[in-house]
Design a protein around this nucleic acid. Structure first.
Lengths: 135, 135, 135, 135
DNA sequence: GTGGTCTAGACCACT
DNA sequence: GTGGTCTAGACCACT
């Protein structure tokens, strides 16, 4: 499981982690029954405290997205919750709008933003993507 | 002064406000000597507590970006602080990257993101921009 | 709000607290809109860590029973969740059965249990009950 | 040996098992020299992990209540440990009090509790009790 | 004042 | 090994 933390963003890291797990569930990168890294393992990998991961897992478990099995591990719950991929795409659209406005304020045009976005897709394409995605 | 708050984003609202003021200073939308709305006026407009605005103004004053004149009002400081427009562009680039990755995870390609971004620029161009900006 | 912790019972104190808040909500001792003690106040009163109370409040908030308002306080949520008083009475019935079996194993008869139960009701009646209950 | 596990109660299952073995020793349902089910037999019967049973047997052995004979089996120790029936009756009294308080909060009176308790004793009397106990 | 995030660390319970 | 509870304490965000 790939989680990227952006420490400078001001967004609490627990929220970043939860959001990315939700995203990967919605996109199919994580499927029902998949086993997540253990609390300790993910904490070590992301260099955050175990309690922070535990908190995220608990929260997502209460949401019905995950299932924690005592002494065993943490899994993607069988049934996907109602809040689906469409809601996440809508959120993306809103963020894209905000980004475009900021770019404009900073004196950048659409083609500047295009370059930034495109280069990321190039990078992703080169090393391949594990699951999902198109183009 | 236009400030947009996104309460669902997880980013603290005080940070959102401060970032947008910095952005507008860097872009020239706000110029040295410009008077900012009063603490209570901005608090009312954004429907947040006055202390939240006060803290933002104080922090930006400490940064050297603003100048609070007791009994008078708050102004953009005469000289622009060292942290300039380039730093903000770099932050934008990082956000664009993050957005592109999320789009990819959600199964969207670069042209989907492009459409979102482009439509915003269309909107902005039509009604013109209040101050500063180019393209 | 009255919470009794039984440290010898083996039941985690966070669960005891959550159960008793749920119980008081179901019984009407706590009504929608009522303000709960602050995290710090309840922690002090029960001599437990603030994080323990916070954890309970968060959990009950995710369940929809409470509403935490940042910078303000914690309140009983407006609408009662579906899991109602009947479920709690059923749980009580099961516990009563278990108690009766234990009493029997220890060589006690129904009238011994009756005396224990009755004396508690006497005590409660004497000092009056703040809300709800009958006899 | 009859053990009832209540998974919803929040009481750790190892504690439930240990408590019930202690109870049956105190009441005479289990007598010195009696052989307990093997670790794996009890684990299978209760559908819990063998280590859970093992830990319970080890703990009770440390208490002096049980005796694990390597290669043979686990037995009730010859002499009863000091913690006697009176302590268990006191624990019962405390649980009865807690039950009565919960009943009161739920709007039930002593006679409602009485009915619950009494019906259990009726059931027990009818089919007789396997060992020990009186009334 | 209120809640919220995070760390460090101890110790427990279950597979 | 796995998750689960709890403490102590720092520091942040919002009313």
């Amino acid at each position: 499981m790939f989680i990227r933390l952006e420490t400078a963003s001001g967004i609490p890291i627990s929220r970043q982690i939860a959001d990315q797990i939700r995203l990967q569930c919605a996109s199919g990168a994580l499927s029902p029954g998949d086993r997540l890294p253990s609390v300790r393992a993910l904490a070590r990998e992301l260099a955050v405290n175990q309690n922070t991961i535990l908190h995220v897992y608990e929260r997502l478990t209460l949401e019905g997205l995950l299932e924690m099995r005592h002494g065993d591990g943490t899994y993607i719950a069988k049934k996907l919750p109602s809040a689906g991929i469409e809601r996440l795409r809508e959120a993306l659209r809103e963020d894209a709008e905000r980004l475009a406005r900021r770019a404009d304020t900073l004196g950048l045009g659409p083609e500047d933003v295009w370059k930034m976005v495109e280069s990321v897709f190039q990078k992703i394409k080169k090393k391949g993507r594990p699951k999902g995605g198109n183009q």
